[in-house]
Amino acid sequence: MTIDLGLKDKVAIVTGAGGGIGRAIAVEMARAGAKIVINDIGVSLGGEGGSASPAEETRAMIEAAGGEAAINTDSVADWDSAQKIVQCAMDSFGRLDAVVNNAGILRDAIFHKMDPADWKSVIDVHLNGSFYVSRAAAPLFREQHGGAFVHMTSTSGLIGNVGQANYSAAKLGIAALSKSIALDMKRYNVRSNCIAPFAWSRMTSSIPANTPEEKARVEKLQRMTPETNAPLAVFLASEAAREVTGQIFAARLNELFLFNQPRPVRSAHADGGWTPEMIAERALPAFRAGFQPVDVSGDVFAWDPM
């Protein structure tokens, strides 16, 4: 049975589409029939510089395959610029049906050495950028009573990672933002979901590879190309996912995952309330078996991708 994704002549914005996962998603989305707004400011991994060349390369790939694409080089990290990104879709194609919030930078540092400027820069691009672009598209989606948001979260936020307090906080915040959008815009037939991608790209090239264990992990990651994440993003933006919203998925080579979301796992009750001493004596022993280990993403996804 062939499933119609319903993407022919639909319009999608893909931020950070000048390379890596964003480029793979944009190309795959175009292959499914969508017209693409390629948003990319062409900066370095840390957010410095700027060039339209990466976006132009993506457009050339899409057009070579018979697709249509427009380029936008406005920053997602600015409210007014986000409006221009959405307006680019309207000016170029006259409509907007999906937004893929993929743009990102890295400024990794151990927490107690992290510069506040590096904290703010990462939050601005990832979390604020996802809000700004989504919020700019929201009135259109509300008016047409339909639309899809696909946001990039990360296991660095969902599980944890060393030296990425800014990135982890932003990515977990994106998961909460997506859930809020799903709740607030459900009445308008607007969907919002997250993907935690696994891929070797600029965003993962800074992962340490000093110890034998770290080197082994990097070797596994290098097998996971950006293209392995694209089908999930295209599905979530399509009509085939019209009943899917408020969820968190991951794609790792040939594996797909559905993540759970925080819910109470244990409870304790005391007539008349608690004192600190009572918590130590009664609640702590009851809760201890339910504590989550302080692990990192690599501890949880410890088996080789197949």
Rank of each mutant, 00 (worst) to 15 (best):
G163W: 05
I38F: 08
T225I: 06
Q144W: 00
A136T: 03
A138F: 11
A182T: 08
I248A: 00
E63N: 05
L258N: 03
G173H: 13
Q164N: 11
R288K: 10
G298I: 07
Q261F: 13
E214V: 11
K113L: 06
M152I: 02
I13G: 11
F291N: 01
T58K: 13
Y132E: 02
I207S: 08
Y132R: 02
N210E: 07
D118P: 07
N101K: 14
P197C: 04
S206E: 04
A209M: 10
R288T: 08
N72R: 07
N166I: 08
N102T: 14
V37A: 15
R135Q: 15
P293E: 13
A216Y: 05
N166W: 08
I25Q: 01
V125D: 03
R242P: 00
A98I: 13
I174M: 15
A176Q: 15
I248K: 00
K220C: 00
E219C: 12
D80P: 02
V300D: 05
K8W: 00
K10A: 08
A32F: 11
D124V: 01
V100Y: 12
L177G: 05
R135I: 01
D9K: 06
S51W: 06
K113T: 10
G290P: 01
D304N: 13
H151R: 03
Q144H: 06
A70V: 15
L253D: 05
L256K: 09
K215F: 10
V100F: 15
I105S: 14
S154K: 00
G46L: 02
N229W: 07
T211W: 07
T2A: 14
W119C: 13
M185L: 11
R223V: 12
N193V: 02
L140W: 05
N193P: 07
C88M: 09
R223P: 03
M90V: 09
G22Y: 00
A117F: 09
D108A: 14
A199P: 04
S267G: 09
S134R: 01
A286P: 03
L106K: 07
N102F: 12
F257D: 04
G272R: 00
M224S: 09
I110Q: 04
I62V: 11
A65D: 02
I195A: 06
K179F: 06
